[in-house]
Amino acid sequence: MEHATESRTDIAVEQEEVVVRIRGLCKAFGSHEVLRGFDLDLLRGENLMVLGKSGSGKSVLIKCIIGLLRPDAGHIDVLGQDMLALRHDALDRMRMRIGFLFQSNALYDSMTVRQNLEFPMRRHWSVMDANERKARIMKALEDVGLAHTADLMPSELSGGMAKRVGLARTLIMRPEIVLYDEPTTGLDPITGREIVELILQLQRQYNTSSILISHDLNVAKLAANRVVVLHEGRAHAQGTYDELLRAKDPVVRRFFMAL
């Protein structure tokens, strides 16, 4: 685990600037209350991991942040802007500063890998010329080690490759904040680890702040500066991986029991 410790301390939190501030977030589906007053602060340069068991509302949480779901109550400030008050173009502009890696990758399956990467740049076509776009796509693919796949269709990629392409697409607009929804789920442990290392490397390279959603403790160990445990719709506990490892709280203990 030499590498792991190194990665964690490498990305030191630069300043105490809060880039995402969530207060009292509530979201219910019918009578099913998923989030019940969730609070969270993400600092600039930080890798924050939200740990929670399946169905605890982790995906719901980050979908609320990016505005795919509308919360019933609470506040979400991203980079100093009230996300819930933004509309149309203002919201779209804000979203371009935030990257989102889907649990299922969500690659556009009618487009090639190249077109998938081109898609987020559409709104910048007026300011970016064709060569610049091309260069950026190739750079993004090289970053994830898949330069040779530009002309493949998503159906021709393996799970790990699709995840890398998803990662490249998420980062192509150089977002300041990245939300990762279970980046390692469904991958074998080795590939999962490679993806986490790639995330860390790209994070250092582009200096992003990120929220990682997972139930995978290896991700916490390898990548997180701080871990928040989501339990029954609230931030039940938080701390560094080592702090939580030593915690006495029964809910937290249950996550670490398997180790």
Partner: peptide, 10 residues
């Protein structure tokens, strides 16, 4: 994929 379009600002 529709959600992905939405978050990419389209």
């Amino acid at each position: 994929q529709i959600d992905a379009m939405e978050v990419s600002g389209t």
